[in-house]
C-alpha cells in the first residue's frame, strides 16, 4: 500500500458516493447512463469473486464489499426506485459492442486459464471501457450537470492515481501487472478529453458542462 494507491481508492469511493447521493437527493437519475452503472456492477462482481477464495486484508475485504453494495444500490435506484427519471432514449450505447470483444479478449489474454482468472481479466478489460456509455450519453445530449462532471472527475483521478501507484510499485518492488497496467492506461486515455472539458468549462462556467 502506498499513498497513490490509497488516495486512488478513496477517489474511487468518493466518485461512487457522489453519484449515489446525487440520485438519492434529487430523486432523479437524469443524465446518468444506467448502462455504465450496470457495467460497473458487473466489473465489481466478476473481479471480487476472490472474496470467497482468498483473504488479503481487512481493508481489502471492506472496500470490496462497500464498492459492491454501492454499485448495486445505484443500479437499484436507476432501474427501480427512480426509473421514471431514467432517460433510456439517450442511453442508447450498444453494450454488446463492448461485452463481446472484452469477453473474447479475456479468454485469449490472461494470466491463467481458470474460471476465476478469466473473470478477473474480463473485469479489468471491462472496467477500461465501462464509462463509454456515459461519455456517449453526454455527447448525445450535449451537456452534463456539474455534479455528474464531479463524479467523472473523481473517477478519472482514481485512474490517474492508480497509474502513479503502478509506477511507484515498479520502482520500489519491481511489481508490474501487465494486464492491469495496459488496460489502466487505455482507460485513463478515455478521461483525458473529459478532463480538458471539465477544467475549461465546469470550473469557469455556469455549473453545466456543455460540449462544443
Amino acid at each position: 500500500m502506498n499513498i497513490f494507491r490509497l488516495s486512488g481508492d478513496v477517489c474511487h469511493l468518493i466518485a461512487i458516493i457522489i453519484l449515489f447521493l446525487k440520485i438519492w437527493r434529487s430523486k432523479s437519475c437524469a443524465g446518468i447512463s444506467g448502462k455504465s452503472q450496470v457495467l460497473f456492477a458487473l466489473v465489481f462482481t466478476t473481479r471480487y469473486l476472490d472474496l470467497f477464495t482468498s483473504y488479503i486484508s481487512a481493508y481489502n475485504t471492506v472496500m470490496k464489499v462497500v464498492y459492491l453494495l454501492l454499485a448495486y444500490s445505484t443500479v437499484g435506484l436507476i432501474f427501480f426506485r427512480f426509473r421514471n427519471s431514467y432517460d433510456s432514449e439517450s442511453d442508447s450505447f450498444r453494450v454488446e459492442f463492448l461485452l463481446v470483444p472484452v469477453a473474447g479478449l479475456s479468454f485469449l489474454e490472461n494470466y491463467a486459464f481458470t474460471p476465476l482468472e478469466i473473470l478477473w481479466t474480463f473485469s479489468i478489460y471491462l472496467e477500461s471501457v465501462a464509462i463509454l456509455p456515459q461519455l456517449f450519453m453526454i455527447t448525445k445530449t450535449g451537456e452534463a450537470e456539474s455534479i455528474t462532471a464531479h463524479y467523472l472527475l473523481f473517477l478519472g483521478l482514481y485512474r490517474a492515481l492508480y497509474l502513479a501507484n503502478w509506477l511507484w510499485r515498479f520502482h520500489t518492488e519491481g511489481f508490474y501487472d501487465q494486464i492491469a497496467v495496459v488496460s489502466g492506461v487505455v482507460q485513463t486515455i478515455f478521461y483525458c478529453d473529459f478532463f480538458y472539458l471539465y477544467f475549461t468549462r465546469v470550473l469557469r462556467g455556469s455549473g453545466k458542462m456543455s460540449l462544443p
Partner: peptide, 10 residues
C-alpha cells in the same frame, strides 16, 4: 505470474 495469482489491488 504463474501460479497463486494474488490480486491485492481493487
Amino acid at each position: 505470474h504463474a501460479l497463486n495469482i494474488h490480486h491485492d489491488e481493487l
